[in-house]
C-alpha cells in the first residue's frame, strides 16, 4: 500500500475532491483525519472509510478561524502524535468579473481559499519541522496559470496558492518537508454540478462547452485528482518539490498550443 501508516489531514474532506481523496488515501493505508466545516458531510466521509475497514476520524473546524485550526492540529497531534501529510483542499468558488464581486464575497473567498492554506500550514509546520519530515499538498487550479473568464476572485486565490506553494517549499526544504500544488481543470464535483444547474438555462450545453475546452473531451472526476494527491503524498514523489502538478485534461496545454 502506497500510504501505509501515513497520518493524513485533509481539509474540506466532506465532499467532492476532498472526500474522494480521503477514501482513496484510506484504501492506500493512510490514517485519515477528515476535516470539514460541515459536520454531517465530514462524518459521512468517515463512515464510508470505516465501513471499508479504513481508519479515519472527523475533526470539525473552519479553516479560516485561527482558533479552530489550532484546535484541529492539537487534536490531530493528540490522537496520532504527528502529521505526515497535510492536504489543504478546502475551497469555494465564485462567479463574476472583478467589478461585479461584492467586497464581503471577495474577503470570504480569499479567506477560505488562501488563508485556509496558510492557517493549517502555520500550525502543522512546527510539528513537521520537529520531525524533519512531512508533505504538504495545496489545492491550486489551472485558473492560476491562465485565468478564467468571470472567475476573477477565484483565479486570484488560486494564483496566490501556487506562489505560496513555491515560497513555502523554499523555506521548509531544509526541514525535509515537501510542498507541492495540484492544478485541476474542470472536475465534475457537487459544486460544479450545482453551479452549472443554477447559472445556465441549458446545463447540458454548458457541459459540452467545458468538454471541448479540455483536450480530453471529458470533465475530470474527483478520483483523477485523488490519484494525483496520492502520488504527491507518497514517497514516490520524493524528488518533487514546489511543483505544480496539472490534472486538467489538457486545458493548459491545449490553450497554449
Amino acid at each position: 500500500m502506497r500510504l501505509a501508516g501515513k497520518i493524513s489531514l485533509i481539509t474540506g474532506a466532506g465532499s467532492g475532491i476532498g472526500r474522494s481523496t480521503a477514501l482513496r488515501f484510506a484504501e492506500e493505508g493512510a490514517v485519515v483525519i477528515v476535516n470539514d466545516v460541515h459536520e454531517e458531510n465530514g462524518n459521512q466521509t468517515v463512515k464510508e472509510i470505516t465501513g471499508r475497514d479504513g481508519e479515519a476520524i472527523f475533526i470539525q473546524g473552519d479553516v479560516t478561524d485561527p482558533a479552530d485550526v489550532q484546535k484541529m492540529i492539537e487534536k490531530a497531534i493528540g490522537a496520532y502524535g504527528r502529521i505526515d501529510v497535510l492536504f489543504n483542499n478546502a475551497g469555494i468558488s465564485n462567479v463574476g468579473a472583478l467589478h461585479e464581486v461584492e467586497p464581503d464575497v471577495w474577503d470570504k473567498i480569499m479567506s477560505v481559499n488562501v488563508k485556509g492554506v496558510y492557517l493549517p500550514s502555520k500550525y502543522a509546520l512546527p510539528y513537521m519541522m520537529e520531525k524533519k519530515s512531512g508533505t504538504i499538498i495545496n489545492m491550486s487550479s489551472c485558473a492560476a496559470e491562465m485565468g478564467l473568464a468571470k472567475r476573477a476572485a477565484y483565479s486570484t486565490t488560486k494564483g496566490a496558492v501556487l506562489s505560496l506553494t513555491k515560497a513555502m517549499q523554499v523555506d521548509y526544504a531544509p526541514f525535509n518537508i515537501r510542498v507541492n500544488a495540484l492544478l485541476p481543470g474542470t472536475i465534475f464535483t457537487p459544486f460544479v454540478e450545482k453551479y452549472l444547474k443554477s447559472s445556465y438555462d441549458n446545463p447540458e450545453e454548458a457541459i459540452a462547452g467545458i468538454k471541448t475546452r479540455q483536450l480530453s473531451g471529458e470533465l475530470g472526476r474527483p478520483e483523477d485528482v485523488a490519484a494525483a494527491a496520492i502520488f504527491l503524498a507518497s514517497d514516490e514523489s520524493r524528488f518533487m518539490m514546489g511543483s505544480p502538478l496539472y490534472i486538467d485534461g489538457g486545458v493548459v496545454f491545449g490553450k497554449n498550443a
Binding site: Y118, G147, T156, G159, A160, S163, V170
Partner: peptide, 23 residues
C-alpha cells in the same frame, strides 16, 4: 518562483498574476 522567508508576500504576488490574466 517564490522567495525565502517571504511566503505571504509571494502569495499576494501570485494572486496578482492570476488576477491580471482573468481581468
Amino acid at each position: 518562483v517564490g522567495q525565502q522567508y517571504n511566503a505571504a508576500y509571494s502569495a499576494t504576488k501570485g494572486a496578482i498574476i492570476a488576477l491580471t490574466k482573468t481581468m
